[in-house]
Amino acid sequence: MKFLDASWERNEHFSFFQSRKNPCFSVSFSVNLANVYAFKMQHGYRLTDCLYFAAMLAANRVNSFRQRIVDLRPVEFESIDAAFTYIPKGRTLHCNCVAKFDAKFSVFSSNISAARALADQNPTLCPEGGAAQSLIYFSCVPDIPILSATNPWGDPWVDSVPRFLFGKMDDSGNTTMAIEALHSFIDGVHLTEFYKLLTQITESPQQYFC
Rank of each mutant, 00 (worst) to 15 (best):
F3P: 11
L4R: 08
L4Y: 08
A6G: 00
W8E: 07
W8T: 09
H13A: 15
S15V: 13
F17N: 08
N22R: 11
S26A: 15
F29N: 06
F29R: 06
S30A: 12
V31L: 15
V36S: 03
A38E: 12
A38P: 06
F39A: 01
H43A: 00
G44N: 02
D49I: 04
L51H: 08
Y52D: 04
L57V: 09
N63C: 10
I69A: 05
L72C: 10
L72V: 04
R73D: 07
R73E: 13
F77C: 11
S79K: 15
I80H: 00
D81L: 05
T85E: 01
T85S: 07
I87T: 13
K89D: 12
K89P: 03
G90F: 11
R91H: 12
T92N: 14
C97W: 12
A99I: 06
K100T: 11
K100V: 09
F101P: 06
D102M: 00
A103V: 09
A103N: 14
K104R: 14
V107L: 07
F108R: 03
I112S: 03
A115C: 09
R116H: 01
L118D: 14
D120E: 10
D120Y: 11
D120H: 12
P123N: 07
T124W: 14
L125F: 15
P127K: 02
E128Y: 09
E128L: 11
A131G: 12
A132Y: 03
A132S: 07
A132R: 12
L135Q: 07
F138C: 08
F138Q: 06
V141L: 15
V141Q: 09
D143F: 08
I144E: 14
I146A: 04
L147S: 13
T150S: 15
W153S: 12
W153I: 11
G154Q: 02
P156Y: 12
V158P: 00
V158N: 07
V161Q: 03
F164C: 03
F164P: 00
M169Y: 08
D170G: 09
D171G: 12
S184Y: 06
F185R: 00
L191Q: 05
E193V: 02
Y195D: 08
L197D: 04
Q200Y: 11
I201Y: 01
T202W: 02
Q206Y: 05
Q207H: 09
Y208K: 02
Y208N: 02
C210V: 11
C210M: 11
